[in-house]
Simulated assay, not measured.
Amino acid sequence: MSVPVNIPFLNGNEKKYVNECIETGWISSEGPFVGEFEARYSRYCHRNHGIAVSSGSAALDVAVKALGISSGDEVIMPTFTIISPAFSLIRAAAVPVLVDSELTTWNMNVAEIEDKITARTKAILVVHIYGLPVDMNKIVHLAKKYDLLVIEDAAEMHGQTCHGRPCGSFGDISIFSFYANKNITTGEGGMILCNDDALAERCRKLRNLSFDPALPRFVHHEMGWNYRMTNMQAAMGLAQLEQIDDFIHRKRGMGRYYHDELSFLEESGYLLPKQQTAYADNIYWVFGLVAPSETEKEDLVAYLNKANIGTRPFFWCMHEQPVFASREFYKKTGFRFAERLARCGFYIPSGLGTTREQMGLVVEAIKGFYA
């Protein structure tokens, strides 16, 4: 049996709502599910406004521009993350300022941030990684102390909380992704959340080619994007949101099962996901493993792939991305924990649709490798 690294879980009203789009002809971004999904998701995250877009990366592009981050502005962010946040900053001619990771939570090391704040620092871009959030109380304290903006990338955190508040409720602007492997999926898609009325209206304008209702149609004074979400995507997202509590329960059950069965790996020097912090319990968006060496990771991954068990490597660090070779932050030092995560980390099948039988096959294969 093949065990894919991710299997989506589409057992609710997804088909019913998408069929409604087809039957009514409302398949574009003008359909009613878009507004309903925006309203319900923003309420779920305790925000005033939701702006649905075509992807999490699109949400970051819009967020950065809407906040006025521009040429020469410094934005502090983790080096260990997906590349999208760095792309959005660099497209705006801003300067990413990188911090190392914590080996315990795999998130950015908040203790490093204050030393990297300068007169040019405009924002902190937080990325919650893999299942545990960054301690947002500390981030908000720093932002207030130095009058900085906070962009909260909660792309992987649907249903997660921090200090009892929903992830996505802390930033001046926050974003989510609804890619197929997320806890809520629309296939592709994303959401921008904020509380400020003017900022929300700015985001809506930028996602829609900067159409201005005060101008004749097709007359533009500013560049924007076509980053709209379709009615069919929003219909699927709404059906998924209806099941979010069950999804998080399932994810945590999967995490407990893997922890129980794979804890023996810690004796060989592996790092398993931290189960909880003082401010959050892990939701195990993915179940990652950090091997004691790059060679051991590669050997185990090859063994699993030969057994038709899917894996994915961890993110690669921003300071080692070839595309950034001409940038000032390329190949800087002081990121040893992030580099270990990137080199030695990978995750095993843990999508919402992954069955207990499939997880058992994963565990059996890993135990067989070490037998």
Rank of each mutant, 00 (worst) to 15 (best):
Q276G: 00
G68A: 07
M157A: 14
N282T: 08
P8W: 11
L209S: 14
M1V: 13
C344E: 11
Y303N: 08
V75T: 05
T104N: 13
H49T: 08
D281I: 06
L215P: 01
L241K: 12
Y130N: 12
N109P: 00
E114R: 12
G345R: 02
V134Q: 05
I139G: 07
I366F: 07
E38A: 11
H46W: 07
F80V: 05
A234I: 11
S70I: 00
N137F: 01
K332C: 11
E188L: 12
L103C: 03
I82P: 00
S177Q: 06
V97P: 00
N107L: 05
W225H: 11
L206P: 02
N19W: 03
R217A: 00
N137G: 14
G253V: 00
G224F: 05
E328L: 05
C344Y: 09
T161V: 14
P4V: 09
R207G: 00
Y347F: 15
N305I: 04
A234R: 06
F346M: 06
I366E: 03
G237K: 10
F211N: 11
D299L: 15
T105P: 04
Q276R: 15
G190M: 08
C45L: 15
E294R: 15
H141T: 12
C162Y: 01
G189V: 03
I83M: 11
T118W: 09
R356H: 06
M223A: 15
F247L: 07
V18D: 02
Y347W: 15
T24D: 00
L60D: 01
A302T: 11
I82Q: 14
C167Y: 09
N137E: 13
I139L: 08
A154E: 04
A200K: 04
A307E: 14
R120Q: 13
A123I: 08
I51T: 14
G269L: 10
A94L: 06
P8H: 08
K65T: 12
S55T: 13
Y130I: 11
C194S: 05
S29G: 12
G35L: 05
K332H: 02
R47A: 10
W316V: 13
E38I: 04
A235S: 07
D281W: 01
E14N: 09
